[in-house]
Amino acid sequence: MKTSTSSAETRKMPFWAVLFWLLVWQIAAMLMDQPLLLVSPLDTLKRLSSLVLEPIFWKSIAFSVGKIMLGFGLSCLLGIVLAVLAYRFRPVRQLLSPLTATIKAIPVASFVILALLWVSSKNLSVLISVMIGFPVIYLNTLTGLDSIDHKLVEMARVFRVPLGKKLGVVYFSQVLPFLRSGLNVAVGLCWKSGVAAEVIGIPSGSVGQQLYNAKVYLETADLFCWTVVIVLLSVACEKLLMLLFKQAERWALR
């Protein structure tokens, strides 16, 4: 209980703290007075308000959200299914152990360059999101499964609890905190790595391409704008995911 309260405290973002850092940013930009190096938050906002009127803005967002979230979805599916198999069958766990350790250690950039040899740049962010999200979800789910209290499983057996309820309540309720934290971390990592893949692979009409163009043409305001957009998209996906997760939790523990 204490841990979850303190982690909730850590995640809390008070409005005054956000305002403070925006002010620091504004003052730093004003003092530097070099918009090519540091664009102020006000100028970023101004540029963003014109950028949202361009069709390419929404097209790029749709492209990247689609690809990165597809990668995230696949990493969830793969991570959860393999974690259940690894929990059930020891050889699967042993087989996957070096693979997950290696994937975790390889830098994203190496992955991206290697992956460019295998898939088209268009689908690069899908593959990278899967590679980065999978070990996080797999290891969290497996840790959750390993920590299941078998006395509760025995209780369910003695009381003849039906399989659906047993899976939903007895297993899910215990794996839930681990899975929630895994998904939360993985969705952020998928965004970071997915956009990094797009910047390197430059698929046409992606957020990564917009970011790359802004850098090449020294459009620093655009660079800041797209960075803000990426942060907002990542946070929005995380919030939406947690909302869906809460619904699933309510359904399973109903």
Binding site: K151, L152, E154, M155, A156, V158, F159, R160, V161, K165, V169, V170, S173, L253, R254
Partner: peptide, 21 residues
């Protein structure tokens, strides 16, 4: 059975624990 330990699902209300079985 009432086991030696309570074997309840801590995050659920008593009614939800009972409705499980």
């Amino acid at each position: 059975a009432v086991f030696q330990e309570n074997r309840l699902i801590e995050g659920m209300t008593p009614a939800a624990n009972i409705r499980l079985v």
